[in-house]
Structures are given as C-alpha cells and as structure tokens.
Amino acid sequence: MSKQHVFFVDDDLIAIMILKKVLEKCDLHASSLSFKNGKEALDYFQSNYSSTDHYVIFLDINMPVMNGWEFLDALSAFTVPEKTTVFLVTSSVDEADIIRAKQYPFVSRFLSKPVSVATVNELKVMFND
C-alpha cells in the first residue's frame, strides 16, 4: 500500500500553522513535515524519496535561500507529476505569478493566501487517491 506524505514549505511559520488548522477543520489529519525554504525541503525529499509513495506539497513562492520556482525546477530531476501534487500557496495576487504557475506540470492549483475551508474541501479529492 502506498503512503501519502504532506509537506509544507514556507518561511512563514504562522502561515503554516494557519494552513494546518484549516486542513484539520476539513478532517485532513495527515502527518506532515514543515520546511523553511525550498533547499531544506529538496534535501529531505531527495534523500527520502520513495517512488511508490505519493507526495502532496504546499509550496510558498517567496522564500529565502531557494524560492518556490527554483524548487519546482529541481523537482523534475527525481519525481513525476503523477507521484507529486504541488499546491502553490502564496500571498501573491500577481497575475504574472499565476501565469507562470501554469507552466509547471507539478502545480495542481494556485492558491492565494489565506486558504479557506471551502477551498480545501474542494481539494480533498486530490489527497486520497
């Protein structure tokens, strides 16, 4: 049976806390890991990657060291979109960011913060398969 992992990648710890609470309200109690930037997440991901498992990543764009875009660029080296679902979670409402997000096959949705309970309920489907 394949395992599901949930990652939060955001330098804003409060934002991660808020998102976790919203997920809980939607009865998503998956065990998760949090990373402060793309580099930390990537290092962990690369060394613990299992091709049989499924990964859900909530990814912020603007972070120090390695931002969300750079992280996405590095993903394709070892995983495929079928195994890895990325939700871009950002405070940005910049049209350019939304257009850019569409160019990445890993990105399932572009979510503007704050993510509401209603939005998460919509996404639930993508979690459990």
């Binding site: 804003d12 409060i14 808020i18 609470k21 919203v22 405070s91 409402v93 913060k113 704050p114 509401s116």
Partner: peptide, 13 residues
C-alpha cells in the same frame, strides 16, 4: 499581502 493574508487567515480561525 503576506501579513494581510495571515491576518485574514487568523481571523477566519
């Protein structure tokens, strides 16, 4: 928008 989005999310909770 970063702190603003945070405030909005917190108030929701």
């Amino acid at each position: 928008r970063a702190p603003l989005a945070r405030i909005m999310g917190l108030i929701q909770l």
